[in-house]
Design a binder for these strands. Structure first.
Lengths: 154, 154
DNA sequence: CACTTGCCTGGAGTGCACTCCAGGTCTTTA
DNA sequence: TAAAGACCTGGAGTGCACTCCAGGCAAGTG
């Protein structure tokens, strides 16, 4: 439940009134984002972004001539998909497995599909569980509404 | 997603064919279950049951004359509700808070209700998130179905 | 009466998913 | 040119929800 706390500020807030000056106004209007830009865009911390890379959840990220990471739109799209997988409740280790399959090429399509199908099933199960809890929750909430605390009914 | 692994064997399997002999056939047909019976019934480990008690998630549990825990049907009902709260994704600390409110008596009805309402909202949000992921999952699954791996289309 | 089994306790250990730190480089700004 | 700020690395630390351990007591069994 802690995954949706932060709304994403976005990379594209250069337009609009009161747009804050971009800290590093990349002259090329391009496909090369710094780690902090990506952090702002995705809502992940820079720590988490570097950690994702360490554990093999990211493809090889481009580097600037001084060795700083430069993320592409492609990387952003992958991060967005990873974010969806995270929302499914998939374990990070399984996401890494999926990333491995992607790295291995097209011949892993069937296995990737199987992984996603299993995930889909678990999402459906989880939705069912959550809906079950709603029944109980609503029952209790109604109970407390009908029987307000002694301090209230004087 | 690891919460629904085990199905509950149940306390009431004394009837039926091939019912295994109850290890400790409590002579009184009553309301006093040992910790391992409760573990079998709830799917929680005995460790977790004791831990729940330590952290204040349980009411005071009865003890036998030798100091062993004896759970009542009331305790079982509470554990079942706690299980539902756990399925909502509520943090254990918040469940403890709720248990505290219950201990404090009827004058906390309003606060309990507020807690459950907040939980209800977070469950609805979570269901929404999961449904969003299904869209992405289905899209990808279809993609992999339409474009089977090279090894398959020879 | 030894042995096994089930239970007790306080406290240590585990796995996960981050999160932060120390010590360093490079670039920009005053 | 000095200070500030964004970035780098390997590794340590954190919070959560358990999970297990050592050492001990009590009751039933061969």
């Amino acid at each position: 439940m802690t995954l949706t706390q932060r709304k994403q500020p976005g990379l594209d807030e250069t337009v609009g009134p009161c747009a804050p000056p971009k800290p590093v106004p990349r002259p090329d209007g391009q496909d090369r984002y710094t780690i902090s830009e990506v952090a702002a865009h995705t809502g992940l911390s820079v720590h988490t972004l570097r950690w994702y890379e360490r554990i093999g959840l990211m493809p090889t990220i481009d580097r600037s001539h001084t060795g700083q990471r430069r993320y592409t739109n492609r990387d952003l799209a992958w991060l967005s998909f990873v974010g969806k997988l995270r929302l499914t409740g998939m374990a990070v280790a399984d996401m890494v497995r999926y990333a491995d399959l992607v790295r291995q090429g097209d011949h892993t399509f069937a296995e990737r599909r199987a992984l996603l199908l299993a995930t889909r099933e678990s999402v459906l199960r989880r939705i069912g569980e959550l809906q079950d809890t709603l029944t109980v929750l609503d029952f209790k909430i109604d109970f407390y509404a009908d029987a307000p605390s002694a301090s209230e009914r004087l």
